[in-house]
Design a protein around this nucleic acid. Structure first.
Lengths: 136, 136
DNA sequence: AAAAACTCTCCACCCAGTCGGTGCTTTCCA
DNA sequence: TGGAAAGCACCGACTGGGTGGAGAGTTTTT
């Protein structure tokens, strides 16, 4: 009832790249890069050729940012977002991706812990330097 | 008592790059790359020009591997290993590095957790798809 | 109108490796 | 002893995920 036709809600916000950058916290260059990679698709261009974005693009950037933080590759993100754009529900795809990444993150944490320990042992084995003392 | 002079113990193991790779689990190419970067310094070269490594190099690779896992840059590692090679005790330097890195890792974990949550919220907001339903 | 801020494209560069090619050296095995 | 196979060297190019700068056009502010 609320929304009838395309008259009332969100007519065409048309954010420019700088505004998107400001809102997402991502550098302008990075957003441009994402567009080049087909990851982000601006709704259009202004007469002068400026990229124009909308709220949906912002939502996509949220996903992108989150998954990139989790080291999902650009290529994989392209696939995920394509599915999403096709109107297909990709909850499960995304959930799968997330689960996999969370798993790999946990693995990485274990790895880091192991390396931390290894370093600690190494450090201990050098303790014979006394702690003070330095020169050759 | 055991070791008198340089006769008895470890005369000159002189490992070649392949053996080092086998022992450390690092690819040969990576070890070569580390040498090129001045990170790892083979004890010498064979007549034919083959890089020759010793146990000390293996120890260094352990440090390198551990710190690289923790995202310490090559440049920083060069500095750390230079100090170490100079015979100066660098326990404190290394400990500082480690502390800093552990800190940044913890930060990263927090960041990851936040992104995980953000994604979860996003996923939840898509639940309206019902969960089933997909095709084209 | 002038200046500042913003945007565009294009090209080069960063890091930490990784790959492939070509040619020499060493090792294995019949 | 000889020849294949494996190992090693060097070189240059490529990767991914951006980042930086130049030079030109556009929009906004003063």
């Amino acid at each position: 009832m609320a929304r009838r036709g395309s008259l009332s809600a969100t007519p065409a916000p048309s954010l420019r790249i700088g505004e998107v950058a400001r809102r997402t916290g991502l550098p302008v260059k990075t957003i441009r890069f994402y567009c080049d990679e087909g990851l982000l698709q601006p709704k259009g261009r202004s007469a002068a050729g400026y990229r124009l974005f909308d709220e949906e693009n912002l939502a996509e950037l949220t996903i992108i940012r989150a998954l990139r933080t989790m080291d999902v590759s650009i290529a994989e993100l392209v696939r995920i977002l394509e599915v999403r754009r096709a109107g297909v529900c990709n909850c499960s795809v995304l959930k799968g991706s997330m689960a996999a990444k969370v798993e790999s993150i946990n693995l990485r944490i274990v790895e880091l812990a192991a390396m931390k320990d290894e370093l600690s042992r190494l450090l201990d084995s050098w303790q014979d330097c006394g702690g003070a003392k330095v020169q050759d």
